[in-house]
């Protein structure tokens, strides 16, 4: 039950993009077509879940055990960068079809602040191993949800008469504000 709450909280109530502003760059940059957004979201969810598991192990078995808290950020970012590289190599070998869909997004994921944010939040909230994995899954699902909704809106926006100065990123930010406002409606749903 606890893990389902963690999942729902990360995916909907405290949506990573719309509440914590994590992963805004791909949100503004990549979310122009629904299928691209969906692929990007899936690649990110995959890396997020892996990251949640691996950084939990590193934090608890290396950093805490040898009392190295000052190495936390360096260790996390190296872990994420190597993990992304590893996932890329693995998918390329294991499933060329999947690689063609996800491939171009993978290198970009290293500097997606949602990934590092996930690792940091999991430590701050003192999740156990299983909760961390569900937190990663939920955060990824929430990221994908926000990205896909935004892509759908932006496909329609192509047809709208937006004032020239607001085209592109500014109107995306304003729409994101409205989305964030509507996601606040979920706030009372659960309290985690």
């Amino acid at each position: 039950m606890e893990v389902i709450l963690v999942f729902l909280s990360a995916a909907i109530v405290n949506n990573f993009v719309l509440t914590y502003f994590l992963g805004i760059c791909p949100f503004v940059g990549v979310s122009k077509k629904v299928d691209t957004a969906l692929n990007m979201g899936m690649a990110t969810t995959f890396v997020m879940t892996m990251t949640a598991a691996v950084t939990w192990l590193i934090y608890h078995f290396i950093i805490l055990r040898y009392n190295l808290p000052f190495l936390e950020y360096v260790a996390f970012i190296i872990t994420i960068a190597s993990l992304v590289q590893f996932v890329e190599m693995f998918i390329r070998k294991a499933s060329p079809a999947l690689f063609r869909t996800l491939g171009i997004f993978l290198p970009l994921i290293t500097t997606n602040c949602a990934i590092l944010g996930l690792a940091l939040f999991a430590v701050l909230r003192e999740y156990d191993f299983v909760e961390s994995i569900f937190f990663g899954l939920g955060a990824g699902a929430g990221f994908t949800l926000a990205l896909v909704i935004m892509a759908g809106i932006r496909e329609e926006l192509e047809l709208a008469d937006v004032p020239p100065a607001l085209r592109g990123a500014p109107i995306t930010l304003l729409v994101a504000g409205l989305l964030a406002l509507s996601f606040m409606g979920f706030a009372g749903l659960l309290s985690v």
């Binding site: 500014p170 930010l173 994101a176 504000g177 606040m184």
Partner: peptide, 10 residues
């Protein structure tokens, strides 16, 4: 709240 940040920056 979060929406205010998006609106202001936009």
């Amino acid at each position: 709240l979060p929406p205010g940040a998006f609106f202001t920056l936009g």
